[in-house]
Design a protein around this nucleic acid. Structure first.
Lengths: 117, 117
DNA sequence: TAAGTGTACTATTAGTGATGGTACACTTAG
DNA sequence: CTAAGTGTACCATCACTAATAGTACACTTA
């Protein structure tokens, strides 16, 4: 479910956050489903529990999961998150598109590439 | 010509590299045109000469500029760079597009956003 | 009660970005 | 030739962040 890419320049906790955001929004993990405990996931990935804790804290801050002390972390049911997330992506994509247009790529060529997916 | 955004999380030298790459590919600075000296640009931006040096070294490594010891740094005339750079952008954009499609955004909606630029 | 949960600390290590300063070789204008 | 301006190569230092290691405590539940 979760994989760490050590060639990736992004910090581990951030990779975990991104991975879970996608999993949750894709519906790969259902609402109110329990996430692995901090200690378990840390052991599974052979990293420090503090790193998992940091990732989970960030996911909670962004509303993707909620925490019950003594019980665990669970997937939030907030449906508005998908639209928020989409907008984040759109902004990133449009920023890149602007730059690539500036250096002379044509909009039609770009769209053709996207259609080809 | 060059501006540093301290709210940007990317390191300064990287911002400078990206900025010059775009300027060169847009043709805003011509081939064989001289770049500001390491010391001058450092003073102008109120940062350390070593940081500029790092940026210039990276630009040279990527073929965007060339260096003449004792004279300065100059814009390279390599025309193949544009295609390389375009491909870099395309890859980044397509990676993001894949993810946003995974969470349920439609391809047509995405293309509409791009057309709207 | 014991095991498993989150959480809050503190200390430490490692890596990177950036600074400050020095020194040297080269080129060019004077 | 000289001086000023170039790149370049160092070194030491500071600051910040990511990650680790370890301990402790409060909570929930079988």
């Amino acid at each position: 479910m979760i994989l760490i890419d050590y060639k990736d320049t992004r910090p581990i906790y951030e990779q975990i956050v991104e991975r879970y955001k996608t999993l949750i929004l894709k519906g790969a993990v259902q609402a109110d489903e329990q996430l692995p405990s901090v200690r378990n996931l840390a052991m599974e990935l052979s990293i420090n529990p503090n790193t998992i804790q940091k990732a989970y804290a960030e996911l909670e801050r962004q509303g993707f999961i909620y925490t019950v002390k003594g019980r665990g972390n669970f997937v939030s049911g907030d449906s508005g998150l998908i639209d928020k997330r989409k907008n984040e992506y759109i902004e990133q994509i449009l920023a890149l598109v602007k730059e690539v247009l500036e250096i002379g790529m044509s909009k039609t060529e770009l769209i053709r590439e996207i259609e080809a997916l």
